[in-house]
Structures are given as structure tokens and as C-alpha cells.
Design a protein around this nucleic acid. Structure first.
Lengths: 170, 170
DNA sequence: AAATGTGATTGCATATTGCAACTGGTTGTG
DNA sequence: CACAACCAGTTGCAATATGCAATCACATTT
């Protein structure tokens, strides 16, 4: 995948890589929702990404080295997508973006509770979260995709999210 | 300006507002380069943004409330663009993005020195910087556009940038 | 009067996005 | 074994966005 490189500015280059409508949303779903298969990303997306766009984004992110793709041993047709180290290091970026969006945009409570916890947790929580992501995406992507690892930060975020959803009647 | 609102997730909503190739680059130039006029943003852009795209982005960002536009008293045709409070609060986001880009993308030294200093400075520096931005963009946008205010953080960043440029022969 | 500076707009080609339908294959079930 | 459900995408097509070069109407400076 060619990246334009109109300048060597870190902000510009990051926008050339992630400055589109969907890339960060896909990474968000993989990171916070542990969506690891094409169908999961497609059908459980709150925003309703189109299948051709999802396919194009996944291909692009793989070629840029932000995510990896491997066969799922349980099903010859299934593929497991995993975050790579560069994408895992986007945790502080997503935390900052989430904190900003929560303050300045019309977010809903259930979908912003995780951003709030992540902001409150600060750097120690981000580091713990990144360590967990390394286990389930890099060290054991297959087991990680199947939920075979205890992840305390991810579990706390997910629990808080489910809690709000329940209390609002789902 | 309509924002789609495909979901109330803070990350999604932020991408609906800022998830394109140019918006954050324009905000970056206003923030770190104090570019406050159309021509400045157009001709002193490292990336060479096209004039119609710049015009469209400025209009959009004004309508979203991220930047404001007022007449320049020194020239009846000139307009001064200023960051508003929401855009000023993007400082931590840009710091995180700059830090990530500096680590994972092929940045040049001269264009990443500011990202490095901003990362090292941490939250105290970001807060001081945001205070300075409030002075030159919100409290006195006209004087701020003319460089009439002492800004220690911005001055330090700019100085470091000029220093690297000189030492590499510009 | 002429040159330059100002914030844009226009025309046109190409690229991206969004949506719906569809493809070729695998797995699980009665 | 037949058949439905599941799987990762692809295809066709319309609408929108981007990129580039030229141009515009007006203001200020020389």
C-alpha cells in the first residue's frame, strides 16, 4: 500500500494512514469489542459499515502493518484479524479522541462510558490495557479471539458498558 | 453542517467530524504555525492543500464551531480565522497523534521536533499551551494573529523547529 | 495606472464511498 | 445426504469527495 508522503510531519503522516471515516472505527471494534472476524466486524458494527468498505479497510490496514490476518484453525474459511504492536500503541490516541468526543459531541451514555473510564484510568490503565492487548492479539491471537484469556481492563470496560445497557433496558 | 450521527460513540462521532485527510492538518497549522489567513494556510502549507479544499474545510469547520472567522481590521478583504475552545482542547489529541506518528511513520527530524517536545512536556505543557492559545485565538484574536502576545510554549516549539532547520541548512 | 495581495469559485478528471445484490465455498443439522 | 445457515468477501452502479489548474471580483500598494 502506497502512502503519499506529502510531508514528513508526524500529524500529516498519521492522517495519511488513519485520516478517513472508517479505519479508526474498525480498530476500535477490534480493540474494545474484540471483534476478530469479518462477519463480526460487519454485523455487530453500531455504525453499519458496508461490506466492500470493510474489506478494503482491512486489506489496507494489513498492508500498512497495523493489523495481521491468519487462518482460524476451527474453520477453514474463517480468518482471524489481530492488532499489531503499532495499532496497540494507538490506545493513548483513542483515549484522547474518546475524551474529546465525549466533551464536545452529542454522545450517548452507553457508548461513552468506556471512554470515560479510560480517561479516568489514565496512563497506568492504558499501559495495563496495552499489555492485555499484546496477549490476546500478538502472543496468542487464536486463543485471544476465542476469549480464552482473562483481561481485567477489557473486562472492566465491557462490564461497565453492559451495565449501562441493562439499566437503560436492552 | 450536518453530521451524520451513525452512532453516539465518541470515537465514531469524532471521526465524523475530523476523520478526513485535511481537517486536522489545517487545525495543526493554525495551532502550531499561527496561520490565521487563507493565503497563509494555502501557500505556507507543507503538504500543498488545494485552494478549493481549504475553502471547503474552513467553511465546514466554522459551521461545526471548531474555528471562527472575523474581519481583519487592517484590510477590508482579509479574514482572520481563529481556533475556538473545542479546537483548542484538541491539543492532547494532536500530542498523542504526533507521538504515535513519530514512532511508527517515516517522519523527518525538523517536522517532528515539535511533536517530541510536546510529548516530553506532558500534560503541564499542554495546559500552558492551551492557555496561550486561548489568549491569541479567543481573547484577542486580532492581536494574536499579528503576533502581539508573548507565548512561551509556542515560542519554544517554534524556536526548536527553526533551530533544526538552520542546523540542516535552510 | 499597474502590480500585487485577498478569499475564494469554477470546470473537469479521477478516486472514494455507500448500498444492494450476489458469489463460491464450508459447516452444521435433520 | 440434502439443505439451510454461515463465511469472507466481490460486483455493479450511483452519488459524493478530492485534486489540480485556471480564473474571479475586489482591495491595497507602488
Amino acid at each position: 500500500m502506497k502512502i503519499e508522503r506529502r510531508s514528513g510531519c508526524p500529524i500529516n503522516l498519521t492522517m495519511e494512514v488513519l485520516g478517513d471515516r472508517w479505519s479508526l472505527v474498525v480498530i476500535r471494534d477490534m480493540m474494545f469489542g474484540n471483534r476478530r472476524h469479518f462477519r463480526e466486524l460487519l454485523t455487530r458494527s453500531h455504525e453499519g459499515i458496508a461490506s466492500n468498505i470493510l474489506a478494503a479497510r482491512l486489506k489496507r490496514l494489513v498492508s500498512l502493518g497495523l493489523i495481521s490476518k491468519r487462518d482460524d484453525p476451527s474453520h477453514s474459511q474463517k480468518a482471524i484479524y489481530s492488532l499489531t504492536e503499532p495499532a496497540i500503541q494507538l490506545v493513548p490516541v483513542l483515549a484522547a479522541i474518546g475524551a474529546w468526543g465525549r466533551r464536545h459531541l452529542p454522545v450517548t451514555e452507553e457508548l461513552s462510558i468506556r471512554a470515560q473510564l479510560l480517561e479516568q484510568g489514565g496512563e497506568p490503565m492504558w499501559n495495563a490495557f496495552m499489555d492485555e492487548l499484546r496477549v490476546i492479539h500478538v502472543e496468542d491471537p487464536v486463543g485471544g479471539a476465542n476469549g480464552q484469556h482473562a483481561s481485567s481492563v477489557l473486562a472492566r470496560l465491557t462490564e461497565a458498558y453492559d451495565e449501562v445497557r441493562r439499566s437503560r433496558g436492552r
